[in-house]
Every structure is written in C-alpha cells, then in structure tokens.
Design a protein around this nucleic acid. Structure first.
Lengths: 161, 161
DNA sequence: GGAGGGGTACTCGGATAAGAGCTGTCCGAGTATCAATGG
DNA sequence: CCATTGATACTCGGACAGCTCTTATCCGAGTACCCCTCC
C-alpha cells in the first residue's frame, strides 16, 4: 500500500543503460553493481531481463560484459520498463460485468467495458510519455547537470577496479 | 511479472461506485458483492478504503450501507484509484546516483535526477487522463451501451435479494 | 390508541491467516585470454 | 620466431530460499428498526 508499484529493479536498469550508452566496450554486471553499490546478484537478474528483451547483448569470456544493441537514441525508457516489468498492462479488465446474476451476456458485449477503455487510455498516455524519452536524452541531461566529465570518470573507474 | 500492477480491487471499487451513483438509498457491501459475484469479505475491505478516502459514507444499522458523498460528476477515476491503491507514486527514485564510490554528493544534487523527472512526467500524464473521466461519465456510457434499463434492473434486484 | 423501552437483526470496521510475487543469493555452462610448447 | 594447444579465469544464465505485499476471511462494535409493554 505504501511502496511503489513498479519493481525497484527498473531504476537500476535505466541507470545501467545510461551508463552503458557512454562506455566504450563491454561492462560486466559486477562492475555496474559496484558503481551503484547495489546487490551484484540481483542486478544480474535485471540485466538478464534486458538481454531477453533484446536491449543489450551479452559478451561472455574474459573481457565480456554487456553492450547496448542499438544506439542510445533508439532506446526509449518504455523499452527498458517493458523489458524488466513485462508488457502486461497496469490494469487488466476481468469482465466482471459478465459475472453475477445480472451479468451482461457475452453476445451483448459488443464494445469494451467503459472502465477498461478509460484505464487503457490513461495507460496509453503513460506509455506515450515514456516512449518520447530515450536513453540518449537522459545521458545528455546527466552530462549537463552532473558535469561533462562524469562518464569519463566512470570509465576510468571501470578500468581501475 | 505477468499480472497487473494495480490491485484487482480497483476494478471492483470503480464498478461499485458506478452502481452506487445510480441507486436511491444506501447499498450494503454484501449486495454489491452478490451482484458482481465476488468475495463479500474482500470487497468490504475495498469499500472501507473508499470510506477512509472520503468517497463514500457508511450508514450502519438495519437499512444501512454505502452512499456516495459527492455527486458522481465530481468523483474522478483517479480519486477511486488513489483511495484504494494509496497516493504513493508508481515509481520512487531512491537516489542511487548518490550511492557508490563515485556517487554525486548531496550538495551537488541541485536538480532532480533526470530519470525521476521522466518517470514523474509520465505518471502525471497518466493521472491527468484518469482525472478527466468521472464516475458520472462512466455511468452514462454504461447506460448507452448496456441499455437504459440496466440500473433500474439492478435496483429491483437489490430490493428483491 | 399512543409513547417509551428493550430486543433483535443487520451493518460496518479492524484484526487475523494463506498465497503469490518481488528481493536477494548461489552455483553451473560457456568462452576469450594467456601462457607454454612444439615446429 | 610463429602457430597450436591446453589450462585458466572471468563472464553470463538459470535454478534456489527469504520476505513483503496482495488476497481472502473472520468475528466484534455499533446502530436503526421492530415489537412488546405500559400508560
């Protein structure tokens, strides 16, 4: 009742994608976890979800890690959210209007339930908004607010640690 | 991963509000549950949430039940969703940019995290969309699609059962 | 016949258990690197 | 000196527990109605 409805892993995944977009070469999940000081094993789970969703490509072996499959300008936040959380909508209509003693028979349900339509419309607005922002946009904003040297510092830290 | 992120009770609560808006007098939770063929005890919990949120007023005693506190045109779907699900946002920024060895110090975080801003913007779009539809609108649409006699039939059923 | 009082039945409200999903963790499968060896 | 081959160390990937939250349920507190009694 008092915590967010989206997985906490969503935030981690987005941050990782932003970092990845400005790195040269692959970055293993362990280093991404160390950078953000989060559980290495659990972040690995999120990266697997991103891999399954086709957003990142995994390179195994000695100098392996994760790399974005597409340019950062072609990856929206919605893509990341859907990869981690699944494509299931926030609201699912269970057609309770068809249930109960006075339930509307299925043959009379020609149009969708008005409630479902309203919820779906709102959800579409949410998705459209998320779809307008790309990982590239976020990386640019991070550079502007936290300083242009931010990503370079991170890359050096990756090489060191 | 494969079910909705919003409580299932949201759908029940909205349907109940729509029905309530066209009824004369109070309707007990038990009859609302019977009408929709759902768990009486669990729907009672949702109605309590609506009561706590100030959307409905509870009348105890022999001919008691629930009544809307405001005209249906002044109750938006957002009001119902927030009453049942809480006002906590879908996405909560945990400020992981401040964590880890390269974390940005708090004194340099003058502006909000770009990721949090993007998520909040999308969420605002979602809320705005939900805020535009009222229970009155939904009741009107139900009358149009399911027939004008729908609510009258329900009222008769309430009186009978 | 009318008013008052008590009983009753019905209502909500919160406190109480079971189930599912998110959070967090572990170890096995696979591969590029590196070094050693032989030509 | 260069190619081959094997060992190595590092990576991802999926399978395995702990815990919070949703789902579902029950019983007690409170109130309006109804009937019986008394005036």
């Amino acid at each position: 009742m008092d915590d967010m409805k989206l997985s906490g892993g969503v935030e981690w995944a987005i941050h990782c994608c932003v970092v990845l977009s400005r790195m040269d070469g692959a970055v293993p999940a362990g280093k991404l976890a160390g950078l953000h000081d989060v559980s290495s094993s659990y972040l690995a789970k999120q990266m697997q979800a991103l891999s399954r969703g086709g957003l990142v490509r995994s390179l195994q072996g000695h100098a392996g890690g994760y790399v974005l499959t597409r340019p950062a300008d072609q990856i929206s936040i919605l893509d990341v959210v859907q990869a981690v959380e699944g494509k299931q909508p926030l609201f699912v209509c269970t057609e309770i209007r068809q249930r109960g003693p006075l339930g509307t028979p299925p043959e009379k349900c020609l149009t969708h339930c008005p409630i479902a339509i309203a919820m779906m419309t709102a959800e579409t607005a949410w998705r459209d908004s998320l779809n307008k922002i790309t990982i590239g946009d976020l990386a640019h904003q991070v550079s502007s607010t936290s300083g242009p040297e931010t990503f370079q510092t991170i890359q050096h830290w990756f090489a060191g640690a």
